[in-house]
Design a protein around this nucleic acid. Sequence first.
DNA 1: TAGCGTTATTTCCCTATAAATATAACACTA
DNA 2: TAGTGTTATATTTATAGGGAAATAACGCTA
Lengths: 112, 112
Amino acid sequence: MRFKIKSRIWIEVDEHVFLGGGRVRLLKAIEETGSLSKAARSLKISYKKAWILIDSVNKSANEPVIVSSVGGKNGGGMLLTPYGKKLISTFDDINHGCWNYLDTQLKKLENL
Amino acid sequence: MRFKIKSRIWIEVDEHVFLGGGRVRLLKAIEETGSLSKAARSLKISYKKAWILIDSVNKSANEPVIVSSVGGKNGGGMLLTPYGKKLISTFDDINHGCWNYLDTQLKKLENL
DNA sequence: TAGCGTTATTTCCCTATAAATATAACACTA
DNA sequence: TAGTGTTATATTTATAGGGAAATAACGCTA
């Protein structure tokens, strides 16, 4: 029997999702591209969906995660704040730790 | 900032979900009630949804998880096999361990 | 001033998921 | 034999979520 243990973790604030895998992927894409529309294209999700995700992150956080500018040289853009960068690296850290834990548990299923 | 780290784990076989929180809840309700229809009513999900969940568990497992009988004294029913009982207790064990790990990580978010 | 590429937001439509309904088969009971 | 409460399955109906498109505002550039 070939088992795999999968997991998904997310952070909630006031019973609402604040940060999860999808939001972290999006934040990383914003960090790389410098814009929400480019990030959405690179992840092949609609701009609307990307905007809703970022909007909910902003509304849940009490410290800025991204700063956006509209108009200007290249039309504007989005940038991660230092707090935002720390947030995604901490999320990744915890997530990897969770995977490592689950790997150690696999044998419990295999010799069941 | 009041953070909570939430998680969901599940077991896959051949890239398909074999066992997750919902299926485990349903199996426990079957163990308590002795029937799939009673279990579905107690969890307030439709019989159809419950049947699809159990059907996929049966198809993924290569050892029986439940045995069902149709017709008869009380119309029939469903029972967990010893393997099925071991499966849900192991799942619960791993799941609680995951929660414990995540609790230890919460401080990383709080003093960020 | 016209054009551009963004952010920001609304509206409409479609589709995929879930719920509700219906039906068959079954084996016991009265 | 009629009735009952299951399992098992198909069909129809409703609902919610996502995608596409349209629109506005913005501030730089040429």
